[in-house]
Design a protein around this nucleic acid. Sequence first.
RNA 1: UGCCGGGUCGUCUAAUGGUAGGACUACGCCCUUUGGAGGCGUCUGCAGAGGUUCGAAUCCUCUCCCGGCAGCCA
Length: 562
Amino acid sequence: MEDKNNPEESANKPKNFIREIIDEDFKTNKWGGNVHTRFPPEPNGYLHIGHAKSICLNYGIAKDYKGKFNLRFDDTNPSKEEQEYVDSIIEDIKWLGADFEDRIFYASDYFEQMYNWAVELIKKGKAYVDDLSAEEIREHRGTLTETGKESPNRNRAIEENLDLFERMRKGEFKNGEKVLRAKIDMMSPNFNMRDPIMYRIVHAEHHRQGNKWCIYPTYDWAHGLEDSIEKITHSICTLEFENHRPLYDWFLNELGTYHPQQIEFARLNLNYTVMSKRKLLQLVQGKYVDGWDDPRMPTVSAFRRRGYTPDAIRNFAEIIGVAKRDATTDIALLEYAIREDLNKHAPRAMAVLRPLKVIITNYNITEELDAVNNPEDISMGVRKIPFTRELFIEQTDFMEIPPKGYHRLTPGGEVRLRYAYIIKCEEVIKNDKEEVVELHCTYDPETRSGTGTSNKKVKGTIHWVSADNAIEAEVRLYDRLFTVEAPDADKEKDFVEFLNPNSLEILPGALIEPSLKNSKPGDRFQFERHGYFCVDTKFSIDEKPVFNRTVTLKDSWGKKNN
RNA sequence: UGCCGGGUCGUCUAAUGGUAGGACUACGCCCUUUGGAGGCGUCUGCAGAGGUUCGAAUCCUCUCCCGGCAGCCA
């Protein structure tokens, strides 16, 4: 067996039931040693993290088994689809690193072939034109317990069907006036087999085909044909299509054409968010969020903007696994994946989000101190940060009356300034509203970071910026979009009622260390003791960058005190 | 109610007739110039009842529970 056909290629990957099927297919030589998968989005919305799971699954399999992976737009419904979505989907898939090479296809390019196949089925007496209205068809379909009734048009002559179908295509009929149906079995316990509709009339402009067509194939009719045309081996889809598999198989069998295997897996659900495109569209159109790429959305473009990395998302897709049982993944797993990646790769910086002024009364010079860019990776080097008499620290790093266990600055207390000296708080300055506005401190020259001339130990180390050199920035903190784990589970209340009013907090007066001056949109950093941040690509301007918080650092102190 | 699919730690996921394991979370300890990271440890699970078997999460039967399906959406 040549290397290309060696399933051992994927031996070190975690196995799931789909990879096991493929391993078995290699053993039986079912596909002649080929693996060819595809991701078939409908361009009617932006990709979300659930799609990312599917992309990673399909592309990962193709890659590991030395097969191919296609991107195919399932653009069979002109009333919902737009070019904007096509563009965003291509961008997102490329960003995720799923390489479809030159294989980007459109179902609408197959319409002529599909039409011919439909004619073939009509000629075989396996499809017919029906004049029934949508409502009548529904009534004839039956219910969960009752079988369906056959349409009076079911046994039309083949010639008549051919003529009517051709005239449907020519545009002689209005929307809904006629449909083409497969002649299968109105008694089937599976609704999908009760003479499903293959074509409906839609007089609408298609984003790629213009007005060339006014009949459009339905999913059930089209999907297997698309897979067949592209010689897909494993047509992987989500669980809700399980009931459609008999129909997928029926069409391909009747046509006697290349027949891929449909395999279903459980879609991704995440708690504290919603995942359906319809609901995401509702959030966008209702202006609950600032577009599909609002950093609070679970879309790929939002995650990108928020600072997530393709590596982290791919790793997440791997650790959640693939199975057939319905599951809701804890958002903590996603956050773990992003922290793990950024911890290793994001350079550190100091940023004060809510500044409190500190004056070191016994310090009158300026020094350049060394700071490590990433303690996890010393190859990332060191940088200089200026230390001056006037500084800013975080408001939350000082408490006049500290709770037990508080490690930071208190009146008369000592704390280390990261990469600098240990300081002691000598005096607390307040305004007339009794709010702390300034701290007067003294520093101990023997405690300079790295010199080791003092054995003095303090409990806490806090971050700071120099008042003279800090850069102003806007920082945006994001919290989960919903206040409950399953926003769409309530039958009484609409999911928007569970929107978290505090999901976005804007801090316009943050101060960041001067080394961040040259950061560019998309750059990622760890702001020490805060979390990971990414320069926003939408609202940043040169004079004032905007930083999106990707994810917080784990905070065992904050957690304990909540 | 008919058909299809599915039930393993709090969550996700392995074990394919032979010691129920991993990851996340939580909690504790150690370490720490990020209350980060890291290290160590703890807690917690086969939906239920029968059966087959030397041996069952795995095979069989019944029960219970959950999801999907009655678009000219995908």
